[in-house]
Amino acid sequence: MELDDLKNSWHQATGRVEKPQIITRAMLEKINRTKYRLRIKKIITAEISGSSVCLVAALYIGYSFNKLDTAFLQVTGVVAILLLLLLPTISFVSIRQLSKAGNFNKSYAETLKAFAVDKKRFIRLQKLNITFSYVLLLTMIVLLVKLFGGNDLSENKHFWLFSFPISYIFLLFYAKWVQKYYQQALQQAEELLAELNT
């Protein structure tokens, strides 16, 4: 089988879609209206709703800060508030970069270069986001136990005995999973960039 043999199936597919004249003025107007509306909706729903949850949680911890009565809990509280503000910011920045449409009149190779660079940056930000999310999870466990149960985990000897070894093992597997998940995408982006630069 040669590449030229695949032309047959390509041209047969053309025959199937060129019969009906489906693109009309009314449809064009409808697509334009819908795309404009959805573009705004996409930004509002995805970026605002996620950020709101983090902001509410940060405000709640700030409001209940006087309940955090030890230095350990206060540091944990500050770290959690900072992460709750930082995580949506990273997410907002990475999605914004990814959603930038750019100029479609450019050549395909130029678009691909921009795509590969954006993808590498996005993966780097996602890795950072995942690591911060993991730290946030740990701080939230400590804070929730205190704020809703009234217990200070740092006073529990089992917490110090088990938290570090368990966290370390978890982090080890977690880091491997993150690496595996993004490695292929990162490699593809780098290969594409290398090919475009030759």
């Binding site: 489906i22 819908t34 996409k42 990814l98 395909y108 678009t111 691909l112």
Partner: peptide, 22 residues
């Protein structure tokens, strides 16, 4: 070029205008 852009944002699915069934 739009197909490349679409690959970037494809995970953020939104409803579309129904088009010809054929």
């Amino acid at each position: 070029n739009v197909a490349i852009y679409h690959l970037k944002v494809t995970k953020r699915k939104v409803p579309i205008v129904p088009i010809d069934e054929q």
